[in-house]
Measured scan of single mutants.
Amino acid sequence: KWEEIAERLREEFNINPEEAREAVEKAGGNEEEARRIVKK
């Protein structure tokens, strides 16, 4: 599940997989929260 979210974030925000994974981890697997983290 987290991998899927990280993949979507990576494609959408054009970030590297590591950044995407970190955002999802910080968000506890919550996609909306992960998006907010990435946008900062």
Score class of each variant (00 low, 15 high):
Asn16Thr: 15
Ile15Pro: 03
Gly28Ser: 10
Glu4Leu: 14
Phe13Lys: 02
Glu12Thr: 06
Val24Met: 06
Pro17Glu: 14
Glu31His: 08
Ile37Tyr: 09
Asn14Lys: 12
Gly29Ser: 02
Glu4Ile: 13
Glu33Ile: 10
Ile37Glu: 06
Lys40Val: 13
Arg36Leu: 10
Ile37Ser: 06
Lys39Ser: 13
Asn16Lys: 11
Glu22Met: 15
Glu11Pro: 03
Arg8Tyr: 04
Val24Lys: 00
Glu11Gln: 15
Glu12Gly: 03
Glu22Ser: 13
Glu18Arg: 09
Glu22Arg: 14
Lys1Ile: 10
Gly28Pro: 00
Leu9Lys: 00
Ile15Asp: 02
Lys26Ile: 09
Asn30Ser: 09
Ile5Phe: 04
Pro17Tyr: 15
Leu9Asn: 01
Glu12Asn: 03
Ala6Asn: 02
Ala6Pro: 01
Ala23Lys: 01
Ala27Ser: 08
Glu18Ile: 12
Ala6Lys: 04
Phe13Asp: 03
Arg36Ala: 09
Glu32Ser: 11
Glu3His: 14
Ala27Trp: 01
Ala23His: 03
Asn14Glu: 06
Ala23Trp: 04
Leu9Gln: 00
Arg35Ala: 05
Glu12Val: 05
Arg36Tyr: 05
Ala34Trp: 00
Glu22Leu: 15
Gly29Lys: 02
Glu11Val: 15
Arg10Phe: 05
Phe13His: 04
Asn30Leu: 07
Arg35Val: 06
Ala34Met: 02
Asn30Asp: 12
Glu11Gly: 09
Ala20Val: 03
Leu9Ala: 00
Leu9Ser: 01
Asn16Met: 10
Asn14Met: 10
Phe13Gly: 03
Lys26Phe: 09
Arg10Asn: 05
Arg21Asn: 08
Glu3Met: 12
Glu33Lys: 08
Arg36Phe: 05
Glu22Pro: 01
Arg21Val: 08
Asn30Phe: 06
Glu12Arg: 04
Ala27Gln: 02
Ile15Glu: 03
Phe13Gln: 03
Arg21Ile: 11
Asn16Phe: 07
Ala34Tyr: 00
Asn16Ile: 06
Glu33Arg: 07
Glu12Ser: 05
Glu31Asp: 03
Ile5Asp: 00
Trp2Arg: 05
Trp2Leu: 07
Ile15Ala: 04
Arg8Ser: 05
Lys40Gln: 14
Ala20Thr: 02
Arg21His: 08
Ala34Val: 02
Arg36Trp: 05
Gly28Ala: 10
Glu25Ile: 15
Val24Tyr: 04
Glu33Asn: 06
Ile37Thr: 06
Ala27Lys: 00
Lys26Arg: 12
Glu25Pro: 01
Lys26Thr: 06
Leu9Cys: 02
Glu18Pro: 04
Glu19Asp: 11
Glu3Gly: 11
Glu4Gly: 09
Asn14Gly: 15
Ile37Ala: 08
Ala27Asn: 01
Lys26Ser: 10
Ala6Leu: 09
Val38Phe: 04
Glu31Tyr: 15
Gly29Glu: 02
Arg35Gln: 05
Glu31Met: 10
Glu19Phe: 12
Glu4Arg: 13
Ala23Pro: 00
Lys40His: 12
Glu7Ser: 11
Asn16Leu: 12
Glu4Met: 12
Lys39Trp: 08
Ile37Asp: 03
Ala34Asp: 00
Arg35Asp: 01
Asn30Ala: 05
Leu9His: 00
Val38Ile: 15
Ala34Leu: 02
Glu31Trp: 14
Lys40Asn: 14
Ile5Leu: 13
Asn16Ala: 11
Glu33Ala: 10
Trp2Ala: 06
Asn14His: 09
Glu22Ala: 08
Lys26Glu: 09
Glu19Ala: 13
Ala6Tyr: 09
Ala27His: 01
Glu7Thr: 13
Glu31Ile: 10
Asn16Asp: 14
Gly28Arg: 12
Ala20Leu: 03
Glu25Tyr: 15
Glu11Tyr: 15
Glu12Met: 08
Ala27Pro: 00
Gly29Val: 01
Ala34Pro: 00
Glu7Ile: 12
Glu4Thr: 08
Ile15Leu: 11
Lys1Met: 12
Pro17Ile: 15
Phe13Leu: 07
Ile15Gln: 03
Val38Ser: 03
Pro17Lys: 14
Lys40Ile: 14
Glu4His: 10
Val24Ala: 04
Glu3Arg: 14
Glu32Arg: 10
Asn30Pro: 00
Phe13Asn: 07
Ala34Arg: 00
Glu7Leu: 15
Glu7Ala: 13
Lys26Cys: 06
Ala27Asp: 00
Arg21Phe: 12
Glu32Asp: 10
Ala6Asp: 01
Glu22His: 12
Ala23Tyr: 06
Gly29His: 03
Arg36Met: 11
Pro17Leu: 14
Ala34Phe: 00
Arg21Glu: 07
Ala27Ile: 00
Glu4Trp: 14
Ala23Ile: 11
Asn14Pro: 05
Asn16Pro: 14
Glu32Thr: 10
Ala20Trp: 03
Glu12Ile: 06
Asn14Cys: 08
Val38Tyr: 04
Arg8Trp: 05
Leu9Gly: 00
Ala34Thr: 01
Glu7Asn: 14
Glu11Lys: 15
Ala34Asn: 00
Ala27Leu: 01
Ala6Val: 13
Arg36Asn: 13
Glu3Val: 11
Ile5Trp: 02
Ile37Trp: 07
Ile37Phe: 08
Glu31Arg: 04
Glu33Gly: 06
Ala6Gln: 07
Glu4Asn: 09
Glu22Tyr: 11
Lys39Gly: 11
Lys26Ala: 12
Leu9Glu: 00
Leu9Val: 04
Arg36Glu: 10
Phe13Pro: 02
Glu3Lys: 13
Glu25His: 13
Val38Met: 07
Arg35Tyr: 04
Gly29Leu: 03
Ile15Trp: 01
Glu32Asn: 07
Arg35Phe: 05
Leu9Tyr: 00
Lys1Gly: 11
Ile37Gly: 03
Glu19Lys: 07
Glu22Asn: 13
Ile15His: 02
Glu19Val: 13
